[in-house]
Design a protein around this nucleic acid. Structure first.
Length: 492
RNA sequence: GGCGCCUUCGUCAAGCGGUUAAGACACCGCCCUCUCACGGCGGGUUCAAGGGUUCGAAUCCCUUAGGCGUCACCA
């Protein structure tokens, strides 16, 4: 608890520090969200920092991609590569001089050393039992002469952290309490790589300190390397930030096994989800609740402003959470249902595809029918296809036991309905409702019995978004009658 | 394998020594209804196991099991 209280910064400053891979995993998005919400819930700052110290991994335009994605999710950094800030630059590859300076300082104080070992073949004593990591600490205690000689020869080197050989390191984590790891578990990790770039484990510490990050929110995969960071803070005499290690987001495979959410579980990128027609606000909302919950309410639908207000660290759960597409579907649907038809039409626009003039003019109406029937936008094309082209169908579709309908009976009903529909003057929902109910009444049949064959004849399918009246209206008079006449021919 | 973390319905979860163990999604049933949805009502399913501590344990302690993570010149 002392670290939590002892933090010297009054202002809450959190960061999201992705490497530029051109992909925003849902788990990363959640980490960013929590860091953002936590900062914002207390009026603090949220910083975006790009950790691009691995040249091999660099992806063009990835920084842009990250910023666009965060913006789509309404996560707006206060400081970052594009917005700048007092601690610029926010891209690590542009901060190499800084890391170099601090690494050398560590050498001076005896907490780090140059290692001239070959990258490919670390010099090892074959018989020696490995006691720490993968490196045998060969260069840990080179004599000054040896070092000079190597340097003079221009031998490339890395800088390694000199870990204590005994003792243990303890740090406080808000979620997990004190975590203690024996120093003998700690490798003399590389701080500065041969190419002059820092490693994550080094740059992260330097930047978090320099950028005055107060709370480090990141995944549990960093728990075991945190003692190395803590030691670095101690070497420099810096105050420790508060650590919060988040449990991972898991996925459930078809065989029931649970593992870290990955491609095999379906779409796992924020952008993949968007393309499927999940709304960014629904994704954010869902993801916020995946591993966090507001203790004081059962409310589940939150917009960003509400989340910023209500978010707090003690609602975070320390066990992994399984990503549930079912619930996301539901939540997405909740957002749809809360929209006006106009809004829905606008959001869904690209999923409607090319609509003819008639349907285009009725798009808002169509949207109204669709918005309660769709979990995600990419279901729309299949759902409205029948309005654009009449599907081929088996005449047996007309058979329906519950309504005691047969193809023969259907032919009767359809041929009875055609002339009446032809007489309809105003082809709108009100009039059609009236026309059809008059027809039903006169026929003495039940509504369902009348509607069934009409639906089949009009749509070629037994399930449609909306009822017969709605379909008649959407299709328009000409197309409706055309379809009924066509099917009647087939029935006779 | 060493080390570390985790463990309440199928899933997200509330719970903080005394509860009929909330709520939501999913599932099932009923109602509404021209189909499908929407909406309404109702239902089943949960404290990983074993030991303690205690008058009393999902809650505290220990052990076991399982899951996950980590042991890079990746982050």
């Amino acid at each position: 608890m002392k670290y939590l209280e002892g933090n010297f910064l009054n202002r809450i400053r959190t960061r999201f520090a992705p490497s530029p891979t051109g992909y925003m995993h849902i788990g990363n998005l959640r980490t960013a969200l929590y860091a953002y919400l936590f900062a914002k819930s207390s009026g603090g700052d949220f910083i975006l920092r790009i950790e691009d110290t691995d040249r091999a991994r660099y992806v063009a335009d990835a920084v842009d991609f990250i910023e666009r994605t965060l913006a789509a999710a309404k996560i707006i950094p206060d400081e970052g590569p594009h917005q700048g800030g007092n601690f610029a630059p926010y891209v690590q590859s542009e901060r190499m001089e800084i890391y170099k300076k601090y690494a050398e300082k560590l050498i001076e104080t005896g907490h780090a050393y140059r290692c001239f070992c070959d990258n490919e073949e670390p010099e090892e004593n074959p018989g020696e039992e490995k006691k720490f990591g993968g490196y045998n600490r060969h260069c840990r205690d080179l004599s000054p002469e040896e070092i000079e000689k190597n340097l003079a020869e221009g031998k490339p080197y890395v800088i390694r952290q000199k870990m204590p050989l005994a003792g243990e390191t303890t740090f406080f984590d808000v979620l997990h309490g004190n975590i203690t790891i024996s120093n003998t578990e700690l490798e003399d990790q590389v701080l500065l790589k041969r190419d002059g770039m820092p490693t994550y484990n080094f740059a992260n510490v330097i930047d978090d300190h320099l950028m005055e990050i107060s709370h480090i929110i990141r995944g549990t995969e960093f728990i075991t390397s945190t003692p190395k960071h803590v030691l670095l803070y101690e070497f420099f005499g810096w105050e420790l930030p508060t650590f919060i290690h988040l449990a991972p987001v898991m996925g459930k495979a078809a065989d029931g096994t649970v593992s870290k959410l990955s491609k095999r579980h379906g779409a796992t990128g924020f952008n993949d989800l968007i393309e499927m027609g999940y709304l960014p606000e629904a994704i954010t909302n869902y993801v916020a609740l995946l591993g966090w919950n507001p203790k004081t309410t059962n409310q589940e639908i939150f917009n960003m402003e509400e989340l910023m207000k209500i978010f707090s660290l003690d609602g975070l759960s320390k066990s992994p959470a399984v990503f549930d597409y079912n619930k996301l579907d539901w939540m997405n649907g909740e957002y749809f249902k809360n929209m006006t038809d106009e809004e829905f039409a606008e959001r869904a626009d690209k999923f409607f595809g090319e609509l003819d003039e008639n349907l285009t003019s009725k798009k808002i109406y169509l949207a109204g029918l669709l918005k309660t029937r769709v979990a995600k936008l990419n279901e729309i094309p299949d759902m409205i296809k029948f309005l654009q082209v009449m599907p081929a169908f088996d005449i047996e579709l007309y058979t329906n036991k519950r309504n005691k309908i047969t193809p023969e009976k259907s032919a009767e009903i359809i041929s009875g309905a055609i002339p009446i529909l032809e007489k309809a003057e105003n082809w709108n929902v009100d009039e059609l409702t009236k026309v059809i109910s008059d027809f039903t009444e006169k026929s003495g049949l039940k509504v369902g019995t009348i509607m069934w064959p009409l639906r089949i004849g009009l749509s070629g399918q037994k399930v449609t978004p909306g009822g017969v009246i709605e379909i008649l209206y959407l299709l328009g008079k000409e197309t409706s009658l055309q379809r009924l006449n066509d099917t009647l021919k087939n029935l006779q």
